[in-house]
Design a protein around this nucleic acid. Structure first.
Lengths: 348, 348
DNA sequence: CTGAAAGCGCTTACAG
DNA sequence: CTGAAAGCGCTTACAG
């Protein structure tokens, strides 16, 4: 940071007061066109950029949004969500001159610390991901005076939000679609590898899967609680394929587990989808380019980032907190699922 | 942002001047132990946190590091590098009270804009990734007065750095190791799928591969320029497997391409590694949990993040720019490579 | 339509 | 060892 040229330099060169320079840009008071021109010309000539800290001090606005991630870095690394989501955020933030302050923390203590730092003049608002029931972060960020927007899956008791905005999508619909499709393909022995059930979205996906299967009148699916990691997907798949009445289709709560599962099937010389249908969730870039392609659910991460940041900017402009449903999840069917048993089954 | 309690409140409660509160914390001048205690007690009681913008304005230091990423969001999404690297950065930055300002941009114009914004009081320094030869960013960030640390692969002409620090690792060594191992396994027809050759690291990996093969006296490997995407890996693999003298081992410049390639092999009923050995680069979380595991090169992203931020903090404390080699790349051998042709070959 | 001045919350020479 | 005051670079009532 070294901002040699200040608003005073611009004012001098343009022959006006500092206040006029400020007003020429903000438009909060009329400034003569002629004066404006001189100001802008001077600013351009000097390559003046207003000092962010000085503005922040004067206005109590940092024009920065904070994002605190508490995740195992390795899980974070395999999750396509973040980069896409952040890109969506940026697409709206950068248009409004906002910045993004990122913190990756490992435990709850560091997480709270991060929010406190953000509140001390590093950010005007924060985005909350991976919302849980009775999430203590709502009370914290509210206390700290941070505008907050939470991203979640499914509806949430408005009381829990404590003045936060909430943007949510629906993971259940595409999951139900997938179940119906598999059943239409003749599958009767389904299995599901979920994410950690402490996550609301992991639970929502599993519940939708199990419920839709029940509705369709087939046997209850085998359900294993996974952990969103490749290792978990691998182990769960080995377990499921060892079952006496082996499933003919396995669905996973994310693509990473699904891909690890596919490799187990291949290694056991099972053909996909002939011997085993497989589906994931996330629609990672790999999904579309595997052979066969992995059926998955695109979650519209970019669009969700956009929606969250739009909600955020609205709050920062004084609007009331809002609750918005974004319809961004889409089942994308690819070659990894197909009719049951077109060829031999049970090659071990 | 809303920091109700200020240094003045603390000073009043402790019965001292604002200056003394400041000095009690910074230690830039001796403060009586007794006084210090009163100050700290008052601050704790009021939950005072110094205002970041106010400090920034007074000291011309933001205690924030900027990171600008220019990448296709989808490629970004499949790259395990960023989350790991950022976590490494955070592990040193958070210990020093520093924040990280992130910008994801789509083109060179937005990139320059992002650096200018960072220089206007949003950051003290910036990290440069994906360094290229004659990279214009060195001149830009230097002009803007931003401390700069670049992360790269292989040595770089110090002249290009223009006062930046440089942290680099060596992708060639593990690549050479891999070639030697494959040759020891009896492979003679090797293939390589590179990344886009405009990237220095993509070129370094390919060159090492080709050179080591030549040194070993085997036929020149088939080389295809890939693009780091799964789709590219898939297409390149289909191409290579169609060749008349099909390779018995294919190495890829990243794991995503390798995994897409593995799926092509499986679909063609080739066994890995019996019919085809495969290796990637990155050591993504999937690599270790595929069946068989994907041989890959761990790049030590976390450690590189640490090294970069240590170099950054050193510069910001007034040290001269430095050039540091970090020895973080490691070949991790797993089941995806093995002796040539233990079973039948050429099943089509 | 414009200027002079106060104020945002810190840090840091300057005096004592 | 401590205080009073200036200054960082903006914005914004207050006057005119």
């Amino acid at each position: 940071m070294r901002n040699a040229v200040t608003i005073g330099d611009v004012a001098n060169l343009a022959g006006v007061s500092k206040g006029t320079v400020s007003l020429a840009y903000s438009g909060k008071r009329p400034v003569a066109d002629e004066t404006k021109k001189r100001v802008f010309a001077a600013a351009r000539h000097l390559k003046w950029q207003p000092s962010v800290p000085a503005r922040a001090l004067a206005t109590s606005k940092t024009e920065t949004i904070g994002l605190v991630l508490m995740r195992d870095p390795n899980v974070l690394a395999t999750d396509a969500f973040f980069p896409r989501f952040i890109t969506g955020c940026e697409s709206v933030l950068s248009n409004h001159g906002y910045g993004l302050a990122l913190h990756v923390v490992r435990d709850a203590e560091a997480e709270e610390q991060a929010y406190r730092r953000l509140a001390a003049g590093r950010a005007d608002g924060v985005i909350l991901l991976d919302v849980r029931r009775n999430d203590p972060r709502f009370a914290l960020t509210n206390d700290l005076g941070l505008a907050t927007v939470a991203l979640g899956v499914g509806e949430l008791d408005p009381f829990e939000l404590r003045g936060s905005s909430y943007v949510y999508s629906d993971d259940a619909r595409p999951t139900r679609e997938l179940v119906r499709l598999l059943i239409a393909y003749g599958h009767r022995r389904l299995a599901y590898v979920s994410g950690p059930l402490e996550f609301i979205h992991a639970r929502a996906r599993r519940d939708a899967f199990v419920d839709e299967a029940a509705r369709s009148g087939i046997n209850a699916p085998l359900v294993v609680e996974g952990d969103f990691t490749a290792g978990g997907g691998q182990r769960s798949t080995e377990l499921l394929l060892r079952a006496s009445d082996r499933p003919t289709a396995i669905c996973y709560s994310n693509d990473v587990m699904a891909i690890a599962g596919m490799s187990v099937a291949w290694q056991q010389a099972l053909r996909i989808p002939d011997d085993l249908s497989v589906a994931g969730f996330d629609d990672s870039e790999l999904a579309g380019s595997l052979s066969p392609g992995l059926t998955s659910v695109a979650t519209g991460d970019f669009e969700r980032g956009v929606a969250v940041c739009e909600a955020m900017l609205a709050m920062l402009e004084g609007e009331e907190p809002s609750i918005r449903f974004v319809d961004t999840t889409r089942l994308t069917v690819r070659g990894s699922i197909g009719p049951r048993g077109t060829t031999t089954q049970g090659v071990q």
